[in-house]
Design a protein around this nucleic acid. Structure first.
Lengths: 117, 117
DNA sequence: CTTAAATGGTACGGGTCCGTAACAATTGAG
DNA sequence: CTCAATTGTTACGGACCCGTACCATTTAAG
């Protein structure tokens, strides 16, 4: 499946997707949490607290707390790095991968819905 | 300018755009504020507090407060409806239009940057 | 006129998130 | 062995946002 995308349509896509997550998504993740999750799943590992903090340009506690809450939802997991036990490696989970998959489908559905108008 | 968009690329676009707004955007709007602003600028007027509240599926005070804060930044303005003075009409501003324009450019820039890889 | 309905705003208590500053555990340099 | 540097976490005070409940204004029905 593929779509043509002009500037105006990109903006509409952004609006529709945002609107969808505001309207319908149940306990929606904050923008920062979503960024962390997407970064972990779309960029190459390894991912550490400090690495994510500098990638997102936020403080370390933001990452720690986001990992706490997303960990409770089983969207990510943490493991100590055995090579350097100061590091914590952030890892993907099955639930997280499914979440990302549904996310992609949702965005694509929004995009094609607007295409059909 | 136009881009092809597959499901994987739509997801990447969503990640890159979110990441950009987390990293770089100065006093970033919340997702709800952004939805309100985009709805006012991309959907047909008139826009009222109650209308936006039901469109976004949130309570009225959320809209009132968002309009307060975005009003201070001159991104939108309010005017009493002379036909029915209970209504408040939310109106676009020059600054808001410029903001939306830059927003569209930013998203498109993110999209084409990922295209070039 | 009187009164009920509708609209937007405000008060309030509660929850969440933030960044700074401290802390514990671990590593590596000397 | 000692101690400074690094990493992640926790404590804390403050800022922001939320929804419910109430209020003021305006409209329309009777």
């Amino acid at each position: 499946m593929a779509l043509e995308l002009t500037t105006a349509q990109a903006l509409q896509l952004w609006q529709k997707a945002n609107l969808h997550f505001v309207r319908d998504e149940d306990p929606d993740l904050s923008m920062r949490q979503m960024s962390i999750l997407l970064t972990v799943y779309l960029e190459a590992p390894p991912h550490t607290v400090r690495g994510l903090a500098s990638r997102l340009n936020v403080s370390k506690p933001v990452i720690t707390r986001a990992l706490d809450s997303m960990g409770k939802q089983n969207l990510i997991s943490r493991r100590r790095d055995d090579n350097d036990r100061r590091n914590v490696l952030i890892q993907r989970t099955v639930e997280g991968a499914l979440f990302i998959e549904r996310l992609a489908d949702t965005i694509m559905a929004v995009a094609s819905r607007q295409e059909q108008r």
